[in-house]
């Protein structure tokens, strides 16, 4: 059992108008096998939380801690965090021209495991995971995210999650821009990963739609850089019915 603990996290970003505080004291504890949905209106800081956990250089942690089984995550470089078991599924995956998906996946797996995966099992694992996500085998020969449709990019993110087997996955708006079929396929991939590896999931979303496929254990409403309310799956239903207005008017 692993635990990711976020304590009183404050994060700033540099803008044209100067330094702006985006996260203003986030507290959150996620255990293996749990699904935490983070929901909130645009601009509430949800994606900043995701990037800050992953270590994007654009975001500066001014106070607070993030620990993984007691280890100081904030002291780690971006690649060290990934090797420690933290995965960020990105809202806008980046194109890397000239680098094939298969080369990328093998390089990442090798980096995370500390040794190259055994060729025969690896090829089968990739093939199976791609089939599970209804991805054409030809996909492995394409360049990373280059010319991918929105749905292909998200499947590719979940493919990586399934193959890299992180302890914790932060999925940043994985559902945005997906049609219903793609949403279901991607959600099944997340559920498979959860069932097979007991990964803890931080599911960041604007909509409740994905929660019909991935059942959250906890729902956190994120407003103005901190968690405004917490509850079980029923809270998502309430948000579906009422929207975020009551939080915004209070804030």
């Amino acid at each position: 059992m692993s635990t990711l603990t976020i304590t009183d996290l404050h994060v700033t970003v540099e803008t044209d108008q100067g330094t702006k505080e985006i996260l203003r004291g986030v507290n959150l504890t996620i255990n293996s096998g749990e699904v935490h949905a983070i929901m909130g209106p645009n601009g509430s800081g949800k994606s900043t939380l995701a990037y800050a956990i992953a270590g994007h250089p654009k975001y500066t942690v001014t106070s607070g801690t993030v620990t993984l089984d007691g280890e100081d995550v904030l002291a780690m470089s971006v690649d060290e965090r990934a090797r420690a078991g933290i995965f960020l599924g990105m809202q806008y995956p980046v194109e890397v021209p000239g680098v094939s998906v298969s080369n990328f996946l093998r390089t990442a797996k090798t980096a995370i495991e500390g040794e190259a995966p055994k060729l025969r099992t690896w090829v089968k694992d990739v093939k199976d995971a791609m089939a599970g996500l209804r991805m054409d085998p030809e996909f492995a020969n394409r360049n990373v995210n280059e010319g991918f449709s929105g749905g292909e990019k998200k499947r590719h993110e979940i493919l990586q999650m399934e193959l890299l087997k992180p302890k914790f996955a932060v999925l940043d708006e994985t559902d945005s821009g997906l049609d219903v079929d793609a949403l279901r396929i991607v959600s099944e991939g997340v559920n498979r990963a959860k069932a097979s590896t007991d990964v803890g999931i931080l599911l960041i979303t604007h909509y409740t739609r994905i929660l019909r496929y991935i059942t959250p254990d906890f729902v956190h409403v994120f407003v103005d850089g901190r968690i405004a309310e917490e509850g079980g799956p029923e809270l998502a239903d309430r948000l579906e019915a009422e929207g975020y207005d009551r939080f915004l008017t209070n804030a």
Binding site: D79, M90, V94, P97, F104
Partner: peptide, 30 residues
């Protein structure tokens, strides 16, 4: 050099020097 590419690769556990090499090799690949 695109730092977003570097971040993406490093966020998958790939060390910086290796990530940089992948990006540059990729640039020349075609």
């Amino acid at each position: 050099f695109d730092d977003q590419q570097l971040f993406y690769l490093m966020a998958r556990g790939i060390p910086e020097d290796q990530a940089r090499r992948l990006v540059v090799r990729g640039f020349f690949a075609s």
